[in-house]
Design a protein around this nucleic acid. Sequence first.
DNA 1: GATGAATGAGGTTTCATTCAT
DNA 2: AATGAATGAAACCTCATTCAT
Lengths: 241, 241, 241, 241
Amino acid sequence: MTGVTVSAERARRTQAERRSRSEEALLDAAAELIAERGVEGTSLASIGGRAGVSRGLPTHHFGSKDTLVARLAQRAQEGIAAAMVANLEKQARKLDEVSGLEVVHLTVDSYLEIFEHPTPDERALLVMWGSTFPSRSSVEGMVEAERRSYEGLAEVIASGQRDRSIRSDVEPAAAAVLLLGMIRGIAALILTDSAVTDMRSVRRTCDEWVTSALAPLPDGGRGGVGAPARRLRSVSDGAAG
Amino acid sequence: MTGVTVSAERARRTQAERRSRSEEALLDAAAELIAERGVEGTSLASIGGRAGVSRGLPTHHFGSKDTLVARLAQRAQEGIAAAMVANLEKQARKLDEVSGLEVVHLTVDSYLEIFEHPTPDERALLVMWGSTFPSRSSVEGMVEAERRSYEGLAEVIASGQRDRSIRSDVEPAAAAVLLLGMIRGIAALILTDSAVTDMRSVRRTCDEWVTSALAPLPDGGRGGVGAPARRLRSVSDGAAG
Amino acid sequence: MTGVTVSAERARRTQAERRSRSEEALLDAAAELIAERGVEGTSLASIGGRAGVSRGLPTHHFGSKDTLVARLAQRAQEGIAAAMVANLEKQARKLDEVSGLEVVHLTVDSYLEIFEHPTPDERALLVMWGSTFPSRSSVEGMVEAERRSYEGLAEVIASGQRDRSIRSDVEPAAAAVLLLGMIRGIAALILTDSAVTDMRSVRRTCDEWVTSALAPLPDGGRGGVGAPARRLRSVSDGAAG
Amino acid sequence: MTGVTVSAERARRTQAERRSRSEEALLDAAAELIAERGVEGTSLASIGGRAGVSRGLPTHHFGSKDTLVARLAQRAQEGIAAAMVANLEKQARKLDEVSGLEVVHLTVDSYLEIFEHPTPDERALLVMWGSTFPSRSSVEGMVEAERRSYEGLAEVIASGQRDRSIRSDVEPAAAAVLLLGMIRGIAALILTDSAVTDMRSVRRTCDEWVTSALAPLPDGGRGGVGAPARRLRSVSDGAAG
DNA sequence: GATGAATGAGGTTTCATTCAT
DNA sequence: AATGAATGAAACCTCATTCAT
C-alpha cells in the first residue's frame, strides 16, 4: 500500500511537473512572440508552434487567449519584482537601514538596468503595457498592477520624507507619476530604437535628476549633482566601474 | 464659356470637397475608435460605420488600413506640432528672444496641457505609439516621427547650452531621452488611469524638475524651485490662476 | 440653317468619332490586360487606367463588363476572319478557282501564321476561348462563334469533296473537329510556352498531315507527302524561302 | 501497453482517416464546381458547402486556394495517367512488345475515350488548362505537367522511329505538338459543345490520321486507312462492337 | 495530458456598378 | 461625354474556440 501511495504521489507530481513545464514553455514562446508581433499579432497556434507542441495546447492549458496573456503579464511582473528585490538585497542586507531616497534610486536604476538587456518576458511586458493605452483595453490585470506600482512608489517617497532623505515639499503622488512615467517612457524609447543613445549616460543622468529633484538641499548648496552625499552604490556603478 | 468654366470649377471643387470632407470624417471616426479600442481592435468597417458612410469607403479612399492609420498619425502629429507652435507664439512674439530652457519648459508644459484634455486625435496618437512597441510594428511613420521629436529636443537643449540658459554639464542626448520618455510615459499613465492623480500638481512638479535638472546654479543657490529666475509664464499658470 | 445643319452634323460626327476612338482605346487596353491576366483577373478600373482614361469610362461606354468582353471577342474574331480572307485573296484572286483542299490548307496555315506573332486581340481571343471551358461560361458569343467556325470548316471540306480535291471517305464533321481542335490546341500550346519548339517545322508538319489525311490517293501512291500535287503556295512558303 | 498502443493507433488512424476523407471530399467538390464555373468562379466557401462541411475547412486543409487547385490538378493528372497505363496494360501485357506507333495510337485513343465520358476531375483538368492561357496564370504545376506530357509524347515518337513503326522523316517534336494540341483541342471542343458531333466517328478519324501521318508506307500502298497493317485493337473497337 | 480536425465569425481587400457632378 | 465618389456584395484568409480522438 505504501508503495502504491508513493507511486501515485510520484505520478501526480510528475503530472504536475509536466503540466508546469508545458505551461512555462508556452509562456516562454508567448513572450517571444508578443515581444515581436504584439498581443493581437500573436496567434495561439503560433505559440504552440514556437513552443514545439501542438496547436491546441495553449487553449488546453489556459482556456483562452486572454487568460494566457494575463498569466504572462503576471509572470513577467513577478519576475521584475523579484529582480528588483534581489538588487535591493544585494545592495543592503537589511532593507530597514536603507533610506527612502535610496530605495527610489535603486528602483529606478534596477528598472533601467533590466531594460538595457531585457529578457523576452520584459520586452513582452512593455508591449502589453502599450496595448493598455486604448480606453477599452483587453489585457487584464495590467492596469491594476500599474496602479500598485504607482502607489508603492508614492509610499516609498512618503517614507523617504519621514526619514528626511526626501524633501518635504515634494508631493509623493505627483513625483511617483513622474518617476514611473519616465521609467516606462525611457524603456519604450529604448526598445523601439527611436532614441539611439548611450544607455550608460541615460542611467547616470537619471540618477542625477532623481537626486536634484528629491534630495534635500544641504545648507545653501544644491542637491545631488555636485555632492551626492553618502549613497549606496548604484547598480550601474559596478558596470561603470 | 463663363458658364462652362464656372460649372466645371464648381463641379471640381465640389467633388474635391466631397472627397476631402469624407476623408476628414473617416479620420475623425478612426481617431475615436482607435482611442477606444486600439489599432488592431478597430476594423475598417467600424470606421465607415461611425463616419456614417459605407463599409467600403475607408479602403476606397486610403487603399489600405495601414495607409489610413499612417495618415491619422500624421494628422495628429501635425496637430500637436501646430498647437505647440501656437503656444510658443502666444508666450513670446519673437521666438528669438526665448531661451533654450524656456523652450524646453514650454514644450513640456504644452504637451502636458494637451494631454490633460486630449482630442481624439491626441488620444489615438498615444495609442498608436503604444502599438509600436512590438519589434515588428505596423504603424508606419511613427518611429521616424518619434526620432525627429527626440532629435529636435536634443537640439533645443544644446541651443540652451549655447545661450547659457542650460547647464553645460548636461548631455543633450541623454536629457532628451529622459524628457521625451517622461512626457510620453506621463501621458500614458494619465490616459490609462486618469482618476488617479491631480494633473495640476503633476504639471507643477514637472516644471520644477526641469528647472532643477537643467537650470544653471545661480551663485550658491539652487536651481529653479526657490528662485525660478526670470521665466516666461507657464502655460499652466493661466489655468492655475 | 444649312450652316447649322452642317455644324450639327460635324459635331455629331466628331462626337461619334470621339466615342469610337475611346471605345477602340478601351478595347485595346482590355485585350492587353486579358491576354496578361485573364478575363476575371482584369478589372474595369485597370482597363480604364491602361487606356489612359478614367476608371468609370469602361462602364460608361459598354454598360457592363460582360458587354465589353463580348465586344472584344467580336472584334478579335472579325479581325482574324479579315486576316484570313486577306490571306486567301492574296493567294488566289478568284476564290472560285481555289479547291476545297486548298482552302483548308490556307485556313490552317493562316491561323498558325497568326499565332506565330499574335496581336493582343488574338492572344486575348485565345484566353477567352479558354475561359469558355467551364460548363457555365460567361463569355457571350464565343460558343456560337466557335460553332460557326466548325460548321464553316465542315462545309469547306464538303465542298472539297464535291470538287474532288478531298477524298470522299472523309467525314466532314469529324474532320472539322480534328482540324479546329488541332488549330486551337497548337495555338494554346505555343502561347503557354509549354512546347518550346520550332514553329516553322510545326507549320510544315501540319501542312503534310492535312494533305495525308484529306488528299485523294493518286493511283497507288500516297497522299501528300511525297508528291503534293499542284498546290497554291502556302503562306509559310514565303517565310520559309 | 497493448491496449494503449492499439488505442493510440486507432486514434491516429481515425484522425488521419478523417483528414484524408475530408480532403478527398473537398477535392471532389472542387472538381465539380471548377468544371461548372471555372477556377475563378469557384469560391472556397462554395467548395466547403458542396462538400457538406464548413466554409473554413478548405483553407484549413490546403492553406490557400492556389494550393487546393494545384492539388486537384495533380490528382486529376495522376488519375488520367493511371487510366492510360491501365488501358495500355489491358491491351498488351508486356509493354516491351508494343511498338511506338501503337503506344501513340493507344495514348490518343485513351485520351479521347476519357473525354467521351469524363469524370469531374477530368472536366476540371481541362478547365484548369484553359485558365493557364493568360500569360500570368495562377494554376501552379499545370505548365510543367503540360511540358512533361509533350516531352513524353515526343520520346514515344522517337522510340517508334527506332523500332521502325514510325516513319523516319517525322520530326518528333513537331509531331508531339500536333498530337497533343489536337487531343487537347478536341477535348475542349467536345466539352464546350458536346452535342455537335458524333464522338465515335471523331475517334475513328483520329485513328486514321495518326496512321496516315506517322505509319511507314508499305510498298507502294498507302499508310493506315486501307490496310492498317497489324495493330492492336483500339480501345474504342470494343465499344464500337 | 495532448493532439489536431472542424467550425464560423470577422478581418481586409477587390470590384462591378450606381450616381452626383 | 466624362469623371470619380460612393456603395455593398463577395472573395480569401486568419484565428479563437469547440470537440472528437
